[in-house]
């Protein structure tokens, strides 16, 4: 008996089906409990509320409150990327699923793609809830003149963020408990650098070197662009450098994710750490 080699078309079909299946699991798993959705919308609004009140206490303009709400919504994406993308192989390893992914006749990139698509859809639902609740509760001003540009900038930001998530997922592949701690480490510092609660770039008070460092994170660039389009009412002319930067992030991060995944997978196989639990 001879094995028939799959054609390119068969391989693409299998990988797309794997991505769709992984996406479906994520969407279904992420939305099966209403309490989770409510908590993931209301919890960020509590923190957002604290910062909006701080701005009011300091006598700062209400537009900064709007900036915090956008920042809070984007934090939902960053949190999702850390805990449901970066650390995902770690969870899968703990549950004994990782070896099944390894023996499946599809690329691990298609599994990551499915996780990213599912995560992006789930988090978009939550981000929408955060923005609507935030606007309703805090009555802050928004002015969107170009919905198309706003949508484009948002989409590119999300893709570039999940591209970064795919890189992290690959690098985290062999992590044990350090996955938790690394995620904790990457929360507040990124909130600070990316300007989630206050603008960090184009602000004279922030040192230039810090601003440059901050722009290495896709969320910083995306957040600034989204705020310009949705709060200041600016258009394509104001954010085209941001769009180019986000496209560059995507073009770099996805291939890097693939290389990192191959490297870590081979390393894990060599050292026998792919199925190691309770590290």
């Amino acid at each position: 008996m001879t094995l028939v080699s799959p054609t390119l078309r068969d391989e693409i079909t299998a990988n797309m089906r794997a991505a769709k299946a992984r996406m479906w699991v994520r969407i279904k798993g992420g939305n099966r409990e209403l309490t989770h959705y409510i908590a993931e919308v209301v919890l960020p609004v509590l923190t957002i509320g604290a910062y909006v009140i701080l701005y009011k206490t300091l006598g700062l303009p209400p537009s900064l409150g709007a900036a915090v709400i956008i920042g809070g919504a984007m934090i939902a994406f960053w949190t999702n990327i850390l805990w449901n993308m970066s650390a995902q192989w770690f969870w899968e390893k703990e549950m004994g699923n990782l070896e099944m992914y390894m023996v499946a006749p599809v690329s691990r990139m298609s599994v990551l793609l499915g996780m990213a698509m599912g995560g992006a859809i789930n988090t978009s639902l939550r981000a929408t809830g955060i923005i609507l609740l935030g606007v309703f509760v805090f009555q802050v001003p928004f002015q969107v003149h170009d919905l198309l540009v706003a949508g484009l900038v948002f989409l590119l930001t999300v893709i570039s963020l999940y591209g970064l998530g795919m890189v992290f997922a690959s690098l985290y592949m062999l992590y044990g408990r350090e996955a938790w701690h690394t995620n904790m480490l990457l929360q507040e510092p990124v909130f600070f650098l990316s300007g989630s609660y206050f603008p960090t770039i184009y602000v004279s008070v922030i040192p230039v070197w810090l601003q440059v460092t901050a722009t290495l994170i896709p969320m910083t660039v995306g957040l600034d662009a989204i705020r310009r389009v949705t709060i200041q009412g600016q258009g394509l002319m104001a954010v085209w450098p941001h769009i180019l930067a986000l496209i560059a992030f995507i073009a770099i991060l996805i291939p890097v994710a693939r290389m990192a995944l191959n490297y870590m997978e081979n390393l894990g196989k060599r050292e026998g750490r792919l199925t190691l639990r309770w590290q």
């Binding site: 701005y55 480490l185 507040e188 510092p189 600070f192 206050f198 602000v203 008070v205």
Partner: peptide, 19 residues
């Protein structure tokens, strides 16, 4: 690192507010 970053967030809000 985490508590330091939290502190920097709120401190810079006050400093930016002052500016």
């Amino acid at each position: 690192v985490q508590p330091l970053a939290s502190l920097l967030i709120v401190a810079f809000i006050v400093i930016i507010g002052a500016s």
